[in-house]
């Protein structure tokens, strides 16, 4: 059967283009119900604000939710992966409160998840898939990557309360240098810790330049660091360099930036995290990263990485104007 896709709108065309991309790279389509037991979100309330979820009572009296998130469901339904890698992609509508309008919103989302024995090759593959997704959607895109382990290590060494940790993370995410310096002054954070935190805000852009400058700063303060911190920083930089190398010769290398202001909840995410932007769209359109800590919290003996593309945020997607789509079956 061949279906001519002439009547598809640009968002639907983009969705099919992304599905074709993911399945051609060995990811299998993961379908799921629109409903999930509310208990899943109540147990992971820091990961997903349960107040922003639409709930209803099922016929047997169980409290259910209209799915506000895909990742938790994928993790929940993949218990026994062992030494394998499970590669899935999804195209789903999710339901949550819009942070801008404060009303419930149906959000079209696609993305992929890798669960299991995640190694360096797998991390690079997911990053390349993220970049290729952006390339499908726009001729002008940026993929910002960060390694959350660096921020995590600096904050650990600062030995401050959870509240101050959150304030520091917020300032890094906002590129708010003046706010960060105020928090440092109020909490006695000085010397190399303060300088490293400052660098996470001021360093941005070309991966090789950023890595070189970060290495220089870390080298300068290496004598003040303990062995554990040195190992974390070295490993974090190795991973960033590995990703830069993986992009060489793909034609996607110009899209890559390092931006340490890409932050996520330190309780769930770790290692490489990233965010994608396309020119002309005011919000990030792609977001992802490693979430080994979420896997730990859900008693899964494996690691994970994935990303989501927010189709609703993509606007008119003029790249697809006049594009023909043929669906073969």
């Amino acid at each position: 059967m061949i279906i001519e896709g002439a009547d598809l709108n640009n968002r639907e065309k983009a969705m099919f283009a992304l599905r074709a991309l993911y399945s051609s790279h060995g990811f299998s389509l993961y379908r799921m119900s629109k409903f999930e037991e509310f208990d899943l979100y109540a147990r992971n309330r820091d990961f997903m604000d349960s107040a922003s979820i639409i709930t209803f009572t099922d016929t047997d009296g169980m409290l259910m939710a209209l799915k506000p998130d895909v990742t938790l469901s994928v993790v929940k339904n993949n218990r026994h992966i062992g030494n394998n890698i499970r590669k899935v992609y999804y195209c789903e509508n999710i339901y949550r409160v819009s942070p801008k309008t404060h009303y419930f919103k149906e959000i079209m989302q696609t993305g992929l998840e890798c669960l299991g024995r995640i190694d360096d090759a797998c991390i690079c593959e997911v990053l390349l898939m993220a970049a290729e997704s952006l390339d499908v959607l726009s001729d002008s895109a940026v993929l910002d990557i960060s390694n959350l382990d660096i921020l995590s290590q600096i904050i650990t060494s600062c030995d401050v309360s959870g509240e101050v940790e959150e304030q520091i993370t917020k300032c890094i995410g906002e590129k708010n240098l003046h706010g960060l310096l105020r928090i440092c002054a109020e909490n006695g954070i000085a010397g190399q810790k303060r300088e490293l935190l400052k660098k996470l805000i001021t360093l941005y852009g070309d991966p090789e330049e950023v890595i070189a400058e970060l290495e220089e700063v870390l080298q300068k303060y290496s004598e003040d660091m303990d062995e554990e911190a040195r190992i974390v920083y070295n490993e974090s930089i190795r991973k960033l360099k590995m990703i830069v190398k993986a992009f060489e010769g793909t034609g996607l290398e110009d899209m890559l930036n390092i931006d340490f202001s890409v932050v996520s909840d330190l309780k769930y995410y770790n290692g490489i995290i990233f965010k994608g932007f396309v020119e002309g769209v005011p919000d990030g359109v792609l977001s992802g990263g490693q979430y080994d800590k979420l896997m730990d919290n859900m008693n899964r003996n494996s690691r994970a990485i994935g990303f989501a593309v927010y189709m609703d945020a993509l606007g008119k997607l003029s790249k697809f104007d006049g594009e023909e789509v043929v669906i073969r079956g």
Binding site: S140, D144, Y204, N257, F277, P282, D283, G284
Partner: peptide, 11 residues
């Protein structure tokens, strides 16, 4: 303040 996307493309 700056828009996050503008910061990338009008950096």
């Amino acid at each position: 303040i700056a828009n996050k996307s503008s910061f990338k493309f009008q950096n």
